[in-house]
Design a protein around this nucleic acid. Structure first.
Lengths: 206, 206
DNA sequence: ACCTGGCTACACTGGTCTGTGTAATTCGCC
DNA sequence: GGCGAATTACACAGACCAGTGTAGCCAGGT
């Protein structure tokens, strides 16, 4: 299970090493591979990882299973790619919104999360993946890295909003808990508490 | 898939109908059925529902697969029983703690959650189940009912702590988000933020 | 004209999944 | 002792699972 590196993975590494520009949208991926990854993302998120087989992904992509395996090597690797890409896409969107956002910019995090919540009823892809993957799974590190990055960025934004405030750490944690709680609730009830969480956060930041 | 009612399910209903006393510990369940349910609870929680097969549950219980199916009828029904029981057990424990708890009793919820978090690293069984089950699954209603009950109870406790406070609803939601966020985080990082969440909650209640 | 990399088509492996059929056996209870 | 319910032992079905092997097609670049 997953002993070889795929050709496109090698290609990606090569482009990184030579400093060639790589795009957020499918860095070094073959067109078919991009298709597969997009389909897998949709299905994994919508139905869960265990519930979606590689046959389904290939069929839904209009691609042979062979192509899938030539590009990603294993289902586990595809899951990693899914979450990695989900993170980079999300992060880029966050930074775009942050660029022109008014203070307190910490609220922008709530806005981006709210955007996500509007187009789905399955909550947070990373929380869901963590719930059904064993901690030894290579994708688990991606999940932890994502959540850690979000929490860290939130801390930075709060420190920037109130430069010499007492206990920015605690406030950051407080807001992070509100975010996670609202998103977790969204996964259960299909509707979000993010607007409420945002309102609470605004009061706390005032 | 799941068209018949098991004999023991009929028996349980009968005991309810006749007003016979039923215990929280396995109401009307056969000894073997109790064993199976206990094993299933442990395995489902530890490894996730999709990752655990009925063969594994039967083997781990030292019971034939036939016995499992004679008692529960289907895996789906076993999952429902798992979450139902998890709810009733947890609820009973909560009410016991609440009985002799000092004000503000809303904090007791955090204490019970913290207790749970001490003995595991996989977060909330209900959030995890919601993450990997389709919304049409019969167990999903159990999950929603559980979370709804917790949120409602929290509202009652807050209303009791501060009888005429302004916006008890909002405060209840605020504390609920803290709870859920802390437990979700626990599922990802294996360590809990519940002590921090409790500290924040105590300040909010003061 | 040739070569190469991406892709298709398709069969196939070995394993696991939920669920069933059946006959023999044990257990609790009257 | 005997009745009936619970359980065992075990084989089996049919679907699905991740993953592989192989041969050939096709397009772009040189």
């Amino acid at each position: 299970m997953e002993q070889h590196r795929s050709r496109s993975a090698d290609r990606r590494d090569a482009s990184r090493a030579t400093g060639a520009p790589h795009f957020v949208e499918a860095p070094g991926l073959t067109p078919r591979a991009r298709l597969v990854l997009a389909t897998a993302s949709r299905l994994f998120y919508e139905h869960g990882i265990h519930a979606v087989g590689v046959d389904m992904i290939a069929a839904e992509s209009g691609v042979t299973k062979r192509t899938l395996y030539n590009n990603f090597g294993s289902k586990d690797a595809l899951v990693v790619a899914y979450l990695r890409r989900r993170h980079t896409d999300w992060w880029q969107r966050l930074e775009e919104r942050l660029a022109g956002a008014p203070a307190p910019r910490a609220l922008t995090l709530f806005d981006v999360y709210t955007e996500d919540a509007l187009t789905s009823t399955r909550g947070c892809a990373f929380l869901n993946a963590a719930a059904e993957l064993p901690v030894e799974h290579p994708a688990f590190a991606v999940i932890r890295a994502h959540k850690g990055a979000v929490e860290r960025r939130l801390g930075e934004l709060i420190a920037e909003d109130r430069p010499a405030a007492d206990g920015p750490h605690r406030l950051a944690r407080h807001l992070f808990l509100l975010l996670e709680g609202a998103f977790a609730h969204h996964g259960v009830h299909g509707r979000s508490l993010l607007t409420e969480a945002r309102a609470i956060a605004r009061e706390l930041l005032a």
